[in-house]
Computed example of a mutant assay.
Amino acid sequence: MINTIIFDFGDVFINLEKEASIEAFKNLGLDGPNEDLLAHNDLFEKGKITELQFIETFQKYIPNASIEEIRKAWNASIGDFPLHRLEFLQMLSSNYRLFLLTNTDAIHINRFEHKVGMSFYSDFYRCFEKVYYSYEMGMRKPDPEIFNTLIRKHDLSPKRTLFVDDKKSNTDIAEYLGLQVWNLKVGEEDVVQLFEQKHLPF
C-alpha cells in the first residue's frame, strides 16, 4: 500500500505558461530557444551557474535586452496556483508522507513565492516532509541519482512510494527504479484526481 507520494511542481500544482515566456522573448528579439540556451538552462537548474551567468547567456542573442527584461520574460511562464490543489494537498498531508521534487531555478522560485505571497507558500511548503529543488541538489530529473537520494535519505520503500510528474521521461526512470508512478497528462487530468487515477486508499 502506498504510504509516500513524491510530487513534481510545475504543471502539477502551479500552472505553467511556457508559450507566454517564448512570446515574451520573441518580443525582445529572440526567435525561440537554441542548444546553447537549453544547455545553460540545464546548468542553471543544477545550480552550476549563477543567475547572472544564465541571464548573460540570453544577452548574447538579445544584447539590447536588460537583465530585468530577461528576468521578466523568463518568469512569464509562471502561471496561477489554484487554491483547490493546495487544499487537496493539505488533506493528503495528514495521511501520507509527502515530498516535492522539482527541476527549477532560483529565479522561478523567487517569482512563485512573490506571486502567491508568504501565507500561501508557507501553507504549501508545510505540507511536505521535505522540499527538493534541483538547483539546490546539483542534479535534475530524470537523473536516477536524484530519486535514489530521496530513497536513501528518507528510507523510502520504492514499491510503497508514488511519484507524480507530467513528464514521461521522469516517470519512466522512476518506474524503472521500482516506484509507482502517475504520468499526469496536463490539460486532461488534475492532481486532485489522484484517487480516481491511482485508486489509492485514503
Rank of each mutant, 00 (worst) to 15 (best):
P33R: 10
S94D: 15
P201A: 10
L150D: 00
E136I: 12
A174R: 05
M91T: 14
T149S: 01
C127W: 05
P33A: 10
G79H: 08
Y176W: 09
P33E: 08
V192L: 01
Y125A: 01
K141I: 01
I2N: 02
V186G: 04
L100D: 12
L177V: 05
D190V: 13
K198E: 05
L30T: 10
N110V: 03
G47H: 11
E189T: 06
P33D: 10
L30H: 04
F7K: 12
T149K: 02
I62Y: 14
W74E: 06
E19A: 07
K130H: 02
L92A: 02
I2G: 03
D166E: 12
Y135I: 09
T104S: 15
P82M: 09
E68C: 07
M1C: 05
W74K: 06
N103D: 14
L83H: 04
G117N: 13
F120Y: 05
V186W: 02
K185M: 14
Y176V: 00
L194V: 11
N15R: 07
L16F: 15
I67V: 09
F25K: 02
M118K: 15
L179E: 00
L179N: 01
F163W: 03
E145P: 02
L83E: 08
D155L: 03
I78S: 03
K167A: 11
P33N: 14
F124L: 07
E17Y: 03
L162W: 00
I78A: 03
H199V: 05
R126D: 14
Q193P: 04
G117E: 10
R85Y: 14
N3G: 10
K60F: 06
Y61D: 01
E129P: 11
E189Q: 15
K153P: 00
P33V: 08
L101Q: 03
K167V: 13
R152Q: 07
I55Y: 07
N148Y: 01
M91A: 14
K167Y: 10
M1D: 04
R160N: 08
I49G: 07
I6Q: 06
A24Q: 07
K185I: 15
Y132S: 05
M91C: 11
N27G: 15
F54Q: 13
F13V: 11
K26T: 04
K141Q: 01
Q53D: 09
A65S: 15
P201Q: 13
V131R: 07
L156K: 01
F128Y: 01
V12S: 09
L150R: 00
K167E: 09
G178P: 12
L92W: 04
N3H: 13
F7D: 13
V192D: 07
K168A: 13
N41H: 02
G178F: 05
R111M: 11
M137S: 06
F54G: 09
E145C: 03
L194N: 08
L52W: 06
Q59W: 08
E136H: 14
G178I: 06
S134V: 01
